[in-house]
Amino acid sequence: MNADLPLPVSRTSAELDTSGGGSCGSCALNNVANLEKLGLHSGRHDFVVALAGNPNTGKSTVFNALTGLRQHVGNWPGTTVSRAEGAYRHQGHAYQVVDLPGTYSLLSTSNDEDTARDFLLFGDPDVTVVVVDATRLERNLNLVLQILQITDRVVVALNLMDEAQRHGITVDARHLARELGVPVAPMSARRGHGIPELLDSVAQVARGGTAPRARVRQRLAPAVERAVDALAEQLVAEFPGLANSRWVALRLLEGDVSTERAVRDGTLGDVGRQHASRRDLVTAGQATS
């Protein structure tokens, strides 16, 4: 009965591809033609894309679809335990893709979660693609919201749409995009559906075409809110350019060991400088164009 509902959001490129000569169908095909999988290309790249997500959401399948690599994909948590890297070229830009270990959260401390979090925080990716399981959105959104606290340059890859359909679940991707304030690309990576749309979204965010605005701001108890504000202010004074000072402040309040380490050894300062220099570049680019 879900098939009868003409919800535009549940249109993955599955339907676009089978729609035949439709104008959007051909544009999707053109976009696929624009994708050049570079495998383990280690040359110069224009943008760094981090791939995050809960375990078992098809993250590695998305990675393989983008890079043409064949990292083994298993239907159980923990298949990717270390960072895998690959590359692709899309519309003239080279993208380096970093596949992070699947995690439920960035807040606990385990080896794989640390890897993911450290990269998001200190690796400073241009775009973070969060792969989510459309059949279990609620639980997956927890990680999306956590990542949105660190960076707003996020694209949500709403994967396993085919599975959702099989289970009678419909996800309003457009509404989800509005709620989160970032692009949402519905897809079925195993079938190769929705990849072109994902690539477009990533390109837009990477080039700053769509200014993603994370709309969800975590509501905290007033006392916590005040403490975070105070500490964040200090952090910005100490590490100018730090983009996610509130997030770092909250971690410090919680006594998070690895964040404390980053403050102590100056890693945090480096991130701040990177952000600052990127902003300078962007400003310079706008001035010349």
């Binding site: 959105l137 609620e138 959104l141 999306v144 919201l145 289970h167 996800v171 309003d172 509404h175």
Partner: peptide, 12 residues
């Protein structure tokens, strides 16, 4: 937040 967003987005 996740719960709220999911309830508004998902129909099953």
């Amino acid at each position: 937040d996740a719960d709220r967003i999911a309830r508004r987005t998902v129909t099953a």
